[in-house]
Nucleic acid binder design. Structure first.
Length: 539
DNA sequence: AGTCACAGCCAC
DNA sequence: AAACGTGGCTGTGACT
């Protein structure tokens, strides 16, 4: 693989030379898409400190500046403090979908060594154009430069995380699955305990027939609805919360079946075969994969690991996992964005919801009402609970920010995160529907923009956290690795003797993210890091 | 045999 | 308690 990346145009730049340059000056490498280039560099042993991901930045700029310009896959580096641009170019024959010219055979006549002659000048022009655009955007949104840097850093962190993998004990995983489901079935098919539950459900819903074949397939909502109907129970869906309201002997085994079936199909042995190798769960992370700037994953479902499966995440012998999450990140972000003095004061409390309950409802024990009320306000609930009314009275500025974001969306406008990420505009034809649907669409758009300002700003903060933590971990040790990141929490796998240093690195990164993203607004975002052996031990 | 919308549940 | 934001993923069932 290393050979496939060491092509040249003009002056020769081999991957070894790239490593030399990186070690000597740690330039900001400029390239088209981190996910396409960086894995090969890591494979060749080159870890990069900084980059500018043109594709990622392009998508940040898209809602500010016209149509995207799509350059070929290439890379160049701009050494710090120098006007000269060192050029290297590496690509492989996956670039064949774009116009390319073969540069020559590799060491063994390997035809995989391709490159593009025309790409570099355009790439440099594109970079220059982006810098100019960024400078313009920064005049209105001073944080935008930070957003660009954090987004690019997140891309590097994501590739490194996917490569390192999350420590995953297949032994514990097998044990958890066997305890819950019975032994692994020989071929595919239901494990024993699932099969027993399925037969029980079927017998209770269709008692008139018996036999090896199921009369009711619990995986089929239509089947289940029909069966309940025959029993005189009318349901509008087979959702768990609706089934819980029903008194029928089949409900309990059906709910248990659904719970276990979910684990089996989504995180069972098949999942393990596909995604876990040599004790590591390797997922592919996609920073900015969500419109709000949150990360997504493609394959493996790393951002939806069920809580019961966290027991499978264990540190290697002699290592620890240092876990940290930002408690109640989104309401703290709301306090900062709105500069609501009462709500900012509440962020001093480790449990912000108790502080909100005390201030708005006069009862700290009403914590849960306050929590639900505020989350509902941030998500755009249709119903107005008493707690929401009380919150609005006590924290008018904060709730008003949400209302204004909603109005903007309802009117077809766009909103931005604190650092200047914009939400996508509505489709031009979004209101070309009957009037009653137009209103529903407008409301839905309002809920989206209402939530966007919070979720996207929280993602800004989290990306700044990841960028700072990555920088500190590189300085600390190659053996302290970021192995998991999920919206507002991080997991670092490190030698036990580095535990305290990692704890400090996380705390410092959190404080830095808060200062950089939210400025000096007096908002506190607690980020308590603690070394653990198993992810199940967190909190 | 592939594609797609939908239902439902997992995470935050 | 009810179904209100962002996603990924899987089986079903209708379709080509």
């Amino acid at each position: 693989m290393a050979d496939a990346v060491g092509a040249s145009v003009g002056e020769v730049t081999r991957v070894d030379d790239l490593g030399e340059i990186e070690r000597a000056s740690s330039p900001r490498w400029v390239w088209w898409r981190t996910a396409e280039i960086y894995p090969a560099l890591l494979e060749a042993g080159v870890r990069v400190q900084r980059c500018h991901d043109l594709a990622a930045v392009q998508s940040l700029l898209r809602t500010y500046e016209g149509e995207p310009f799509v350059p070929p896959q290439s890379a160049l580096s701009e050494p710090a403090g120098s006007g000269a641009v060192q050029i290297s170019l590496f690509t492989d024959d996956e670039a064949a979908s774009k116009p390319s010219r073969r540069l020559g055979a590799g060491p063994d006549g390997d035809p995989a060594m391709y490159g593009t002659y025309f790409g570099l000048a355009e790439l440099r022009r594109h970079y220059a154009e982006q810098l100019a655009h960024i400078a313009r955007v920064r005049k209105a949104h001073p944080g935008f430069g930070l957003l660009v840097a954090a987004e690019s850093a997140a891309g590097l962190a994501a590739v490194e995380m996917g490569r390192a993998g999350l420590p995953w004990s297949t032994e514990i995983h097998d044990r958890v699955l066997t305890d819950l489901l019975g032994p692994r079935p020989q071929h595919h098919g239901r494990p024993r305990k699932l099969q027993v539950l399925a037969e029980e459900v079927s017998a209770l819903l269709a008692p008139e027939k018996t036999g090896p074949a199921l009369q009711v397939n619990p995986d089929s909502p239509a089947d289940v609805l029909k069966a309940f109907k025959r029993q005189g129970v009318t349901l509008t869906s087979t959702r768990a919360w609706e089934l819980k309201e029903v008194e029928h002997p089949a409900v309990a085994p059906l709910l248990r079946y659904k719970e276990l079936a979910r684990l089996h199909v989504a995180h069972g042995w098949g999942w393990q075969d596909q995604w876990v190798r040599q004790g590591r769960f390797h997922a592919e992370y996609v920073p900015g994969g969500v419109v709000t700037g949150r990360w997504a994953t493609s394959g493996g479902g790393a951002l939806q690991i069920p809580k019961v499966m966290r027991a499978c995440v264990v540190a290697d012998p002699g290592y620890v996992l240092v876990a940290a999450d930002a408690g109640q990140l989104e309401p703290r972000i709301l306090a900062a964005l709105s500069a609501d003095r009462g709500m900012i004061a509440a962020t001093a409390d480790a449990d912000m919801y108790t502080a909100l309950a005390r201030q708005a409802l006069g009862r700290p024990e009403a914590r849960n009402e306050a929590k639900i009320g505020l989350l509902a306000a941030m998500y755009g609930a249709r119903a107005n609970t008493p707690a929401m009314v009380a919150l609005k009275r006590r924290f008018p500025q904060a709730l008003d920010l949400l209302e204004r974001a909603a109005r903007t969306g309802e009117n077809g406008g766009i909103v931005r995160s604190v650092l200047g990420r914009t939400c996508p505009p509505p489709e031009p034809t979004w209101q070309e529907v009957p009037p009653e649907q137009a209103l529903a669409r407008s409301r839905a758009r309002g809920r989206f923009t209402r939530n966007f300002v919070i979720q996207a700003s929280a993602a800004d903060w989290a990306n700044a956290l990841v960028a700072g933590l990555r920088r500190r971990l590189i300085a600390l040790s190659d053996r302290a690795e970021l192995v998991f990141f999920q919206h507002d929490e991080v997991l670092v796998h490190a030698p036990a003797m580095l535990a305290e240093a990692v704890v400090a690195a996380i705390a410092d990164s959190g404080a830095e993210a808060t200062a950089l993203v939210l400025g000096d607004r007096g908002v506190r975002i607690p980020l308590a890091a603690a070394p653990i052996t198993s992810y199940a031990d967190k909190n």
